[in-house]
Design a protein around this nucleic acid. Structure first.
Lengths: 346, 346
DNA sequence: CCAATTATTGGAAGCGCTTCCCGAATAGCC
DNA sequence: GGCTATTCGGGAAGCGCTTCCAATAATTGG
């Protein structure tokens, strides 16, 4: 069995309180006894038991992340950055997955009741007022990523503005007949991106054909933000239109990948026949040359962690609703209008 | 403050032991008092404190996973399946990331010392004898994924055989001048895949040109299993050879993606000029039509979790070194020899 | 040299639970 | 009815730690 604090105390001939002070380097201890105790501890290979510490301190040094597992590479890249940001602290990360968006409640309930964590990161999941209230009542700091709630800290992308920019890029390229493929409108970002798209069209006096808008089906609460949904949407677009749009704004990169696959199958060339702009800039967008709106994913993860940690430490008060701007990354799927917006890329 | 077991006991007019029996549905309790207590508990919105339970039970209902974060989509898909398999149990998942492969020790040390978990999943990381011994001594069940150790349960892919099959496929297609792009040989799978490749060449009496073998550089202990490494390798291959191989076996799909990008830039057509076989079958392989060796990633994750849980419950003894076979998935990067090996795909 | 501080230390109490031991209550049996 | 099994419930002990309080030892100033 592993050594406990009592073993160390006995062997060092001191009380357990003193050992505790030694290992937590409290100032209330004589440096020489401290050294001696640390020596004994090393000898015994003593390691404090994290759980016991948590119980006594009422602090777990763990943060929870609630993630829709794993429908979209966006989450993964976010998680990576969260983990990265966290690795500089000594907090552990515990993962709560929600497998169906429409059943996120049970997961949230679990996070709340287990009390394993000092703070929670909720990714791409809407928090209703009831749960927001519960977290506030339980005094557990929460940061929402890619979603909003008026009472809860959040960090999200400016979706409407991003969609606007994407569409505007297409318009600037001379396109007039522009379509859009969106996620299901049960998703908040999907709504906003559609709004941004429509706004851009309107402000540039372009009419937009309803048949050129395809909303992906939601499945298992997934909002259609996946490759297959994009593929299917593109097939539908091609099937139901005699004249295709000359340009397409797709609400996410994974969907755009599906669009490209369907286009290829149908002999529709990109960008020659249809120009394409995505959204997210997941890692693979670069590999396939997809023009897209870059979400600063890594930045979002890092900021969220920093904010959460601050909240945990009680440093910060006041609301925090950060909105990051998406940035247009021009690659090849809109034709070689390189230099239209110069971007440094590694 | 949240209700404790004492609050429930007092309000129900019983002892704490009885409350404990009620919520853990022990048989040693009168059903009627149990119901009454459960009623009170609900009223008070009582939730047992997971940490306190863990401490008292000496069981955490948590499993740890040690993951190289996140150099390769292989890990992510594995993690997804792990999480999925776990969601059917009531174990939580805590994530320990190792950011540099060559510094996995500190992470393992932490897993060991914190004792937050009942079992550990170690993904794609080599375990040396010292740490294997420590886990055994601490009596913590471990399952290794994508790696081996003679004393520790493991589940891995048959790398050598998979590489052999990939190469053989190319040979069967009539290729003679076959090259390979591999990860750095500090990686065990990289070694095995190279062996399988060479074996296939040898057994089919094909000579293989050393200049057609590119070993990616290892960076930050990353073994070169990433897109950029593949890209760079392909550039090198093209640069240092007057006559290129007609086919290429690439040790991982992410690298193959880089290879494709470099090929495109250099005007080398795939599959016309060079046929390509990858390894892993990550989700994106399908999107880009990459012929590859499928690792049953989801199966690996699931089996690993099942085995780990069995070990935790003490059901299983004896060694367990499972080797799964990789399966050839024919797509487009070797030319349209569709039907060569018919594969059902959704 | 003495009172007043101040620096250290020991260890009980407490974190919220499980579990074991023991007594009370009830049931079963002759 | 009396006696033994059985069932059920109470609560102390214990999981491994932190922290607070009181006690002791070392210093300081005069």
């Amino acid at each position: 069995m592993a050594a406990t604090i009592y073993d160390v105390a006995k062997k060092a001939g001191v009380g357990i309180g003193t050992v505790s002070r030694a290992i937590n380097n409290s100032p209330q201890i004589n440096p020489s006894t401290k050294d001696r105790i640390l020596g004994v501890a090393r000898e015994l290979n003593y390691q404090p038991h994290a759980l016991a510490q948590s119980l006594a301190r009422k602090k777990t040094f763990t943060i929870a992340s609630v993630v829709p597992f794993f429908t979209n590479y966006f989450f993964i890249e976010l998680l990576r950055s969260v983990q990265h940001a966290l690795s500089r602290s000594n907090y552990d990360l515990i993962l709560y997955s929600v497998d169906r968006m429409d059943r996120s409640d049970t997961t949230l309930e679990r996070v709340l009741s287990e009390r394993r964590s000092d703070g929670v990161l909720i990714i791409s999941i809407g928090l209703n007022d009831a749960y927001a209230g519960k977290f506030i009542a339980a005094n557990i700091p929460v940061v929402l990523i890619d979603h909003m709630h008026f009472q809860i800290d959040s960090i999200a992308i400016a979706n409407r503005e991003g969609a606007y920019s994407a569409t505007e890029h297409l318009i600037a390229l001379g396109h007039q007949r522009i379509g859009m493929i969106d996620g299901h409108l049960s998703s908040y970002p999907a709504i906003l991106r559609l709004e941004g798209f429509k706004k851009a069209m309107l402000e540039h006096n372009l009419v937009f054909d309803d048949r050129h808008l395809i909303i992906c089906d939601a499945q298992a609460g997934e909002h259609g933000f996946n490759e297959v949904a994009g593929y299917l949407a593109m097939k539908r677009l091609i099937a139901q239109n005699d004249i295709l749009p000359t340009a397409l704004f797709v609400a996410s990169d994974v969907q755009a990948l599906g669009v490209m696959r369907a286009a290829k199958e149908a002999g529709v060339r990109i960008p020659e026949d249809i120009a394409l702009v995505g959204f997210d800039d997941i890692e693979f967008a670069k590999f396939v040359g997809l023009t897209t709106m870059r979400q600063p994913i890594a930045m979002m993860g890092q900021m969220a962690v920093e904010r959460l940690l601050e909240r945990i430490h009680g440093d910060q008060q006041g609301d925090f609703h950060h909105k990051l701007k998406a940035e247009l990354i021009v690659r090849e799927t809109c034709g070689s209008r390189k230099g239209f917006h110069v971007q440094a890329e590694s």
